[in-house]
């Protein structure tokens, strides 16, 4: 079993009427099974409303399945007595950087998780130092979060999760509100954590470019996992992706158009260099 595993996961959002009776249910996750290996970099793609964020919230026991089971490091997330252990093992970073930074000073925010876990003071400082260094924000430790750029705030949020020493971090559209520079900063930091610290990364996004360097890509639509495989395998299916309201990187689309027009090119071209190489052979 991998670090995160789901079997037959179903989640219904319930809508209540005024008397508190269930009026309507909406299936957000529909029979999802997946198994994520420790140390992998996973991207989960899907358009808005495809169920990808709901799935992410299950990995941290913020939501519990209606049916089926989710395990984090072998622990069933529905076991209430293990709740804090699960949340420490699988850290979570959210979309809006402002709404997840609690303290008015960067280093105090990073220390918030360890404080909640009851870590002794000296060890909190060590963890805060290590985590801020890992995301390249050490020199900002005494700054107010209000004075940081979006990318910097999001890196502080990541450091805040890292200070809990998780095995895995789940990032729920961490770049959706950032400009291109901020996006790059956050992605570089996440890749670095994955490479250097061996942290399993689950990146939820609708930017296709961010999925290119992943080990494995899952595509969600209508609450179901509809495609999975290496980025190359997934992105070679341009038409299928488009039918799920997704896009492919511009070079991939161009390569696809060219091969449709009869140019003999290898399938699933992902980068500018690859296409250049293929065209000038």
């Amino acid at each position: 079993m991998g670090i995160i595993k789901a079997l037959g996961l179903v989640f219904d959002y319930l809508k209540y009427d005024e008397e508190g009776n269930v009026e309507d249910t909406q299936r957000a996750i529909d029979d999802v099974s997946l198994d994520i290996e420790e140390g992998d970099f996973i991207a989960i793609l899907g358009h808005n409303g495809s169920g990808k964020s709901t799935l992410a919230k299950h990995m941290n026991a913020l939501l519990l399945p209606t049916e089926g089971t989710m395990w984090v490091e072998g622990i069933d997330t529905s076991k209430e007595e293990k709740l804090w252990r699960i949340r420490q093992k699988a850290g979570m970073v959210f979309q809006n950087p402002d709404n997840q930074i609690i303290a008015s000073v960067v280093e105090e925010d990073v220390g918030f998780g360890p404080e909640n876990m009851g870590i002794p003071t000296e060890k909190i400082w060590k963890r805060v130092d290590d985590s801020l260094k890992a995301v390249g924000m050490l020199s900002y430790r005494n700054h107010s979060p209000n004075r940081l750029s979006g990318g910097q705030k999001q890196r502080v949020a990541i450091a805040g999760v890292m200070a809990m020493r998780p095995k895995c971090i789940v990032l729920d559209e961490p770049t959706a509100m950032l400009d291109p520079i901020g996006r790059r900063e956050v992605l570089d930091a996440v890749h670095e954590l994955n490479r250097e610290a061996g942290v399993t990364v689950i990146l939820i996004t609708h930017y296709m470019e961010e999925a290119i360097e992943a080990d494995k890509v899952f595509v969600m639509d209508n609450g179901k996992v509809v495609m999975q495989g290496s980025p190359r395998e997934v992105f070679s299916q341009v038409e299928t992706l488009k039918s799920y309201r997704l896009d492919v990187p511009q070079v991939t689309e161009l390569a696809y158009e060219l091969s449709q027009a009869g140019v003999k090119l290898p399938q699933g071209i992902l980068t500018i260099e690859e296409l250049e190489e293929a065209l000038c052979r």
């Binding site: 997840q100 220390g111 918030f112 909640n116 003071t121 805060v128």
Partner: peptide, 19 residues
């Protein structure tokens, strides 16, 4: 939600970074 995800569960069993 973000606080809960970072194991916040009130003042009990909490340590301080800057006591």
């Amino acid at each position: 939600m973000a606080m809960e995800a970072r194991c916040y569960h009130g003042g009990g069993g909490r340590t301080q970074m800057k006591p």
